[in-house]
Design a binder for these strands. Structure first.
Lengths: 376, 376
DNA sequence: CTGTTAGCGCGTTCAG
DNA sequence: CTGAACGCGCTAACAG
């Protein structure tokens, strides 16, 4: 900048003004000469120095629980779309599913002077995150896909409860009599526990309204024919596995064997579990064709997996765009006004609830795509 | 920092020394008091200010052609592994497959004072990238998965040629008589053109050594039984499509119809084309079971796609680790010495060639995984 | 063993 | 219409 100033024969101040479009009171001549000199010398302002001065770095940080997950990359895509439009840089950290790494990443991002944070927490950091958000003058934080309870900041997630119910309704309508929700253990991952609770509540509701102890799967093997409209007929259970595919296979085999082929639908919590289910079932050959499968999964892959798997697509790109919008509004647009922030976010079907604790809860609707795997 | 200094009653210099471990000549007492004060005040050094001073920001930038691609996220995972170990921050930009955006991203990353760049170019920016690398004192750049010719900087890629040949050998050995390499048009994407050339060269070579105009597929429908060792029998063609799945389906139907069912193997250039092939073939029902399919694709999905698809896995995580190692060596370890850089990188099967133009060419071996889709 | 000084590249008063 | 001077938070001589 000094070089440019010297070349033109003015002071750095004038250059600075030029750069910020404050040429209201600048002679057209100096303006032209500055422009020429800048092009001539290929000068570009140092954002780092600007940031040091202005206390705004124009950078935001994001920590991702597992960046190797394709779901994560879709969310990043959405985040980038919004940030690019506003010329904000994105610092990305992978937490590798380790809470300690996540904490270190957040600290490092703050040290780098990011203006705000997007956190896709690995779980198990609730105390830390709560302390951060309730501490003194924290930089804005928005949680993505996962969150802590009670809410301590804005949060973007799938409409997990409604989506789960929609899927279970579909499974019931297809005539399955027993659903098995397959998931790895919660380990503090809010998404898993919420879906699991939704399943349990659904089954309990059906059980009581349908009469009898449905948790034991009263209606089962004997029934046949068309029960597609009898939603009350669905029993089910939650299968938590952590021992790998062999463990899963043995337990699935037991369930399928007990319930009888052709009436059971497996509902995988995410793509990882979906793959595990696929692998486990691939060796239970005889029964495979008659066991239903569905999952929270990306439509683009579910569609071509095996026979084509019915899925709930979470629209991760839209989730990314939504979380970025929220953060930008809070960080750069003085977003103390919840209503205006909410308005900017609530598009493309996203539902925004402004809570009385001052935080926003943004739900991105999952979309149900039906394929061959849930045809009985 | 000033606050800490004031609290302890020393100067900022002393604090700075403490932070950098230069307490060789510092009284144990002040050391202890500084430590206490830092903890007390929760002080953390401002990396931005440090960078402004030291001309090293401890940040590197990466531009990704399409970050929504799961392949990209795996590469990012690998990059992160190496950067985390050295406490370097990563600025990520998505080019959205647009050369103009890619250029803007690179400029923006440089403005943010990154110490080095990883570029997964979208193609069509050869002139720009070459100008950058050959211009005055560029920050180190390493290209990832794609590159420009002639090489202007270090480069990490799959061993595309060898891998393609390995796959074609496999297809031939399985007894297929005709291979169709399916790809979208090159559009400056080096990976595609290299693989395509490898296919063409392979087929030409087989043609001449096998005798006769094999491009017409001399050996075809008539032959039957075991030809698994007669590799000379493979003919083939390159199918470039840009018109979407319907276009592709029509052209595939023509090829399969002409060649006769059961002898043709489709070789998709990447996962995207693999999905297109799957979708296109899904409606050519009668023939589907008898057409072979293989692709450059991630083993984890190829394995569960349809019947299980034979694939060349590019080990994207390893590619990311490799490119990060190369950049770190060049950027922070004064990597003017090619030999030492190469040594640090050449592990896990990565082959590093130090060229006489001073650039490193690092090839990460693709791994062939055989599944049902190439069983005749 | 520690403090003083100068300045990294820029923005921002204030005084022309 | 423009410039001088100060400071953002930190580091690196050079003095003690």
């Amino acid at each position: 900048m000094g070089d440019v100033a010297a070349a033109v024969g003015v002071s750095k101040t004038t250059i600075s003004r030029y750069l910020h479009g404050e040429y209201g009171y600048m002679s057209d001549e100096t303006k032209a000469r500055i422009e020429a000199a800048i092009k001539e010398l290929g000068y570009r302002p140092n954002r780092m120095a600007q940031g040091l001065k202005s206390t705004v770095s124009n950078m935001v940080g994001v920590t991702i629980a597992d960046i190797g997950n394709p779901f994560s990359s879709q969310m990043l895509k959405g985040i980038q779309q919004e940030l690019r439009a506003r010329d904000i840089q994105l610092l990305v950290s992978d937490s590798n599913n380790d809470p300690a790494i996540e904490r270190a990443n957040i600290e490092a991002l703050l040290d780098a002077q990011v203006d705000g944070l997007i956190v896709n927490t690995v779980g198990g950091n609730d105390a830390y995150l709560t302390a951060y958000c309730t501490g003194g003058e924290p930089k804005p934080m928005v949680m993505l896909d996962r969150f802590v309870r009670p809410l301590v900041c804005d949060c973007v997630a799938t409409n997990n409860h409604e989506a789960t119910v929609e899927m279970l309704d579909h499974v019931a309508a297809q005539g399955f009599s027993h659903v098995v929700f397959v998931t790895r253990s919660d380990r503090g991952v809010s998404t898993r526990s919420i879906r699991r609770e939704a399943v349990e509540r659904y089954l309990a509701g059906r059980g009581t309204s349908g009469g009898g102890a449905s948790a034991d799967g009263v209606l089962g093997d004997g029934t046949s024919g068309d029960v597609s409209l009898d939603e009350g007929a669905l029993s089910g259970e939650v299968l938590v596995y952590d021992g790998g595919v062999d463990d899963l296979r043995a337990r699935l085999a037991a369930v399928v064997g007990e319930r009888g082929v052709g009436r059971v639908c497996l509902f995988a919590n995410n793509e990882e579990s979906m793959r595990d289910v696929m692998e486990a079932m691939s060796e239970l050959d005889g029964e495979r064709g008659h066991v239903g499968v569905c999952a929270f999964a990306d439509e683009r892959w579910a569609r071509y997996s095996g026979e084509g798997i019915t899925c709930l697509d979470q629209q991760p790109v839209l989730m990314g765009r939504t979380v970025a919008k929220a953060l930008l509004a809070r960080t750069y647009d003085g977003g103390d006004d919840e209503a205006s922030v909410a308005e900017a976010i609530a598009v493309d079907g996203v539902v925004v609830a402004a809570r009385n604790d001052g935080h926003l809860l943004c739900e991105v609707p999952a979309q149900l795509h039906i394929h061959a795997s849930t045809r009985l």
